[in-house]
Design a protein around this nucleic acid. Structure first.
Length: 568
RNA sequence: GGGCUCGUGGCUUAGCCAGGAUAUAGCGUCGGGCUUCUAACCCGAAUGUCGGGGGUUCGAAUCCCCCCGGGCCCGCCA
């Protein structure tokens, strides 16, 4: 409902400015603690009108005409600020809409098809705690964009033919693969060993080069070997993602683009732009006019393609299948993804939006699969779930062990997802066990708990026959006038606005902040206002509010990929 | 050496792109609240040269320049 209120403010203000013969290009509307929406337009108009912002605000204020049955109750000026306030109708309609739409709440429909690529970790080992930032940002964005009305296909681009995979394939020949272990962990074991050997005996690198040439030429025997290793790792990776409630809609195999000639065709297309020239035997693209001082290599001197070339072919393929491409990539891809975009632009093709996240490192330094320096996501989830189990035992000692384990699982995974998504991706972080296992801070469990509390009230109400969920739509909610009630309703109204801005800016952490604020508002309401013991006319309306808050908490948690429990 | 990015109370962090009303919140610390719908909760207090210095502006955490510190990257790895 906040979106509609905002539109009305924009409409009313623009009309007024036009009548006053003032420019309307920047209304400078923002959320404020002093109002439901504020406009700072008077500051912007001051140099144009040659008047003080305070006078301009007063002038606008006296000319504004509000709609009779609208969403704006009143406009006030405080110095240069124009403060807008919502009507009772706004509050009532907010609750009504949530009751009507329930958990299917969405901004719009049919906004186009998005292919969102995320995770795409090399299948040479398990997901480590650096990778989950990619997976969680990607999955949360997928969920946000769906809420915003896009059709979203989440995609994992599987590197099944690079140097790393050649090493995995060789390692499978040379060393014992432990079938008792989770396959991605077992692959990492031999991959690390292989890298140690290659470092000590560099003459063996020639064999890796040979493997890469043979796979590029379409050697089916080698392809089978590569695929075997990749599938082992991918099975493990998928299992870990599944634990975190992350599922990709599709998987694109890198080698496809070599086999079906897309890579060759891409190289030919680039050559036609006149940008590609041979230097030192390799084919390089000149992107100086795009601000890249160094040339981009797209074909090795031995004729084989590179990651970048195959990635270009992949993006050209994706471009034909969607209206919006989004890639979630680590900060190490910043330069290369800029070059990728430049080449696509030079070819006159659609470019992806790239969401870059900074690295997660360990206290002793950066993580590396090759060197075996990493903490796996599986280990993190195991530890967090174990810690969560201790917390449940402390807080709910009288429950069954099955209940405790179930709660520990969704609390643990929720905590991990929330901790990762709440911080802006551009912040580099150092992984800290103490921090990861801390359940005191206000994170996912806090929000889940609010949801469980709301469920509990509704369950009690149902048990006493006070309230039938989804049937009591004719209750008068205009009697909800307590501060914490109004605050909560306003918070509920903001959800789609948050979804819109998070989708527009590709900033999933906006939603994390919102979910916490929503839970906060609910908890304050819970403390201040009795529901079940209230007078009958109030009890019904408050139950509607609790039901709406519960719905919105569920929707917010679901959009964050976190389980909304009825009980914990 | 060059490029990108981050630096906000003891710790973690929002706001920065689109400059404006007392700089956001959490953890920790201190004090208070369960005969009341789940206390994984709520209320209150203390804690800030917004890395440093210049500049632009009526106004800078936010824009520009320089410096310091961390991270990432810099043609045939991905």
């Amino acid at each position: 409902m906040f979106l509609q209120f905002r539109s009305e403010v924009i409409e009313v203000l623009s009309t007024t400015l036009k009548e006053l013969d003032l420019p309307v290009n920047d209304l400078d509307i923002e959320e404020s603690i002093h109002a439901d929406l504020a406009s700072l337009v008077a500051f912007k108009l001051a140099p144009i009108c040659k008047k003080s912002p305070v006078d301009i605000a007063r002038m606008i204020h006296s000319s504004i005409k509000l709609h009779d049955d609208g969403l704006i109750e009143k406009v006030e000026t405080t110095g240069p600020y124009l403060n807008f306030f919502v009507t009772r109708k706004f509050l009532d309609k907010t609750l009504y809409n949530i009751q009507e739409q329930g958990v299917d709440i969405k901004s719009l429909e049919n906004r186009g098809k998005v292919i969102l690529e995320h995770t795409s970790v090399n299948p040479n080992g398990p997901l480590h705690v650096g990778h989950i930032r990619n997976s969680i940002i990607g999955d949360t964005l997928t969920r946000i964009l769906k809420r915003a009305g896009y059709e979203v296909e989440s995609q994992y681009y599987i590197n099944d033919m690079g140097r790393q995979i050649a090493i995995v394939s060789w390692a499978l020949e040379q060393f014992d693969f432990d079938p008792e272990k989770k396959p991605d962990h077992a692959i990492a074991d031999i991959y690390i060993k292989a890298n140690q050997v290659l470092e000590q005996e560099p003459e063996k690198v020639a064999y890796i080069d040979e493997l890469m040439q043979r796979i590029e030429k379409g050697d089916t025997e080698i392809a089978k070997q590569f695929k075997h290793g990749v599938e082992l790792a991918m099975d493990g990776i998928k299992h870990t993602l599944d634990r975190m409630n992350i599922k990709h809609d599709s998987f694109a195999w890198e080698s496809t683009f070599v086999r079906n000639q897309d890579v060759d065709n891409t190289i030919e297309r680039i050559k036609k732009t006149g940008r590609a020239k041979i230097h030192d035997g390799a084919l390089m693209v000149d992107l100086l006019d795009y601000g890249f001082k160094k040339k981009l290599v797209i074909q090795r001197s031995d004729g084989t393609s590179l990651y970048t070339t195959r990635d270009l072919a992949y993006h050209l393929w994706k471009a034909g299948r969607c209206t919006w491409m989004i890639d979630v990539l680590g900060a190490d891809h910043k330069l290369i993804s800029g070059q990728l975009k430049a080449v696509l632009n030079a070819l006159g093709e659609k470019e992806p939006d790239i969401v870059i996240f900074e690295f997660v490192s360990l206290p002793e330094g950066s993580m590396s699969t090759r060197r075996g320096k990493f903490i796996t996501t599986d280990e993190l989830l195991d530890q967090v779930e174990a810690q969560a189990l201790l917390e449940v035992e402390k807080r709910r000692p009288d429950t069954t062990s099955q209940f405790k384990q179930q709660v520990a699982k969704f609390v643990g995974i929720g905590a991990v997802r929330y901790d990762v998504i709440k911080v802006s991706p551009e912040k580099s972080t150092v992984f800290d066990w103490r921090e990861a296992l801390d359940f005191e801070k206000q994170g996912a469990p806090f929000i889940q708990y609010s949801h469980a509390r709301a469920c509990s009230i509704l369950a009690n109400a149902k048990g006493s026959g006070f309230y039938q969920i989804n049937t009591d739509h004719d209750i008068d909610v205009s009697v909800l006038i307590e501060d914490t009630e109004i605050e909560l309703i306003k918070q509920l109204s903001r959800f789609l606005w948050v979804i819109e801005t998070a989708a527009r800016d590709l900033k999933p952490h906006y939603l994390a902040v919102y979910a916490r604020e929503l839970a906060d508002s609910f908890n304050q309401f819970y403390r201040d206002v009795p529901v079940l013991s209230a007078d009958e006319h109030l009890r019904g309306s408050r139950l509607v509010l609790v039901d709406c808050a519960r719905t919105m908490l569920e929707v917010a948690l679901d959009t964050l990929g976190i389980y909304p429990p009825q009980n914990m």
